[in-house]
C-alpha cells in the first residue's frame, strides 16, 4: 500500500523544508552556544549580580515549555513594536532555550579544568580575560564537546515546534502534504530519514572535531 508516486512527489518539497530545518538548527545552535558561554562565564565570574542574573535566565528557560517561549518571543515582540521575522524569532527562542542547557554543560566543563592551570596562568601574569579566552574556554569546550553535540541534536528535534510561529520546516511541510493526500507513511518515512541524517552529521562532526582537538593538545 506504499504510494510510490506520492513519495517521489513529496521528496523535493521535503528536501527544501529540510534546508529550513538545517538552517534553523545551525542558527539556533550558534545563538545557544553564545548565550550559554556568556551565561556560564557570568555564573563563574564571582560577580554576585551577574551570577544571579545568569541563574534567573537558566531557571526561566528550563522551567517553562519551549512552546510558550516561542509564543512569547514571536508574538510578544510585535506587541512591543518590534516586528520580527518568523525565522529569526523562532531561532532566538530556540537558541535562548538551548543556551540555558549549554550554560550548565560549559559550567561543568570549566570546573573540570584543573585549578592549578588557572593559578599558573595568573602567576605568569595573564589577565583574567586572557585566562578565560586562552585557558579555560578552549579546554572547557573540548571537554564539553560530546554533551554540546547531544544538545544540538535536541535543538534539531525542537525545530518542528517553530511551525506554530509560521516557520514551515520539515515536519510541518510533511503534515501539509499528509493532510492533502490522506497518506502518512510515504511522507513521514523520508522525514524520519532526514532527521537521522542531520543528527548523524552533527554527531560525526563532533567526533571529528574531538579527535582534532585531542591531537592539538597532545
Amino acid at each position: 500500500m506504499f504510494d510510490t508516486e506520492l513519495f517521489l512527489e513529496s521528496v523535493p518539497t521535503l528536501a527544501d523544508a529540510a534546508l529550513v530545518t538545517i538552517r534553523l538548527t545551525v542558527v539556533s545552535g550558534a545563538l545557544g552556544l553564545l548565550a550559554g558561554a556568556l551565561s556560564a562565564a557570568a555564573q563563574l565570574s564571582g560577580v554576585t549580580a551577574l551570577r544571579i542574573l545568569s541563574r534567573i535566565y537558566v531557571s526561566l528557560m528550563r522551567g517553562t515549555p519551549l512552546f510558550v517561549q516561542l509564543l512569547v518571543v514571536s508574538f510578544g515582540l510585535p506587541m512591543l513594536g518590534v516586528s520580527a521575522d518568523p525565522f529569526l524569532a523562532a531561532a532566538l527562542a530556540i537558541g535562548l532555550n538551548s543556551g540555558a542547557y549549554v550554560t550548565e554543560i560549559l559550567r561543568a566543563g570549566v570546573l573540570a579544568v584543573p585549578a592549578g592551570q588557572i593559578e599558573a596562568a595568573a602567576a605568569v601574569g595573564l589577565s583574567p580575560v586572557r585566562i578565560w579566552t586562552r585557558i579555560l574556554l578552549p579546554q572547557a569546550f573540548a571537554i564539553s564537546l560530546p554533551a554540546l553535540a547531544a544538545e544540538l541534536t535536541i535543538v534539531l528535534k525542537s525545530t518542528p515546534l517553530a511551525s506554530v510561529v509560521a516557520v514551515t520546516e520539515m515536519t510541518y511541510s510533511g503534515v501539509l502534504i499528509q493532510s492533502r493526500a490522506f497518506s502518512a507513511i510515504e511522507v513521514f518515512v523520508p522525514i524520519a530519514v532526514g532527521y537521522i541524517l542531520i543528527a548523524q552529521a552533527i554527531l560525526r562532526g563532533a567526533r571529528h572535531l574531538e579527535g582534532r582537538l585531542a591531537r592539538a593538545r597532545a
Binding site: F75, G76, M79, S163, V164, V165, A166
Partner: peptide, 17 residues
C-alpha cells in the same frame, strides 16, 4: 498567507501578529 500550525494562530491573532 502566514502558513502555521493551528496552536499558534489564536495566540498570534490576540497579540496582533
Amino acid at each position: 498567507y502566514k502558513v502555521m500550525a493551528f496552536s499558534g494562530i489564536i495566540p498570534g491573532l490576540i497579540a496582533g501578529a
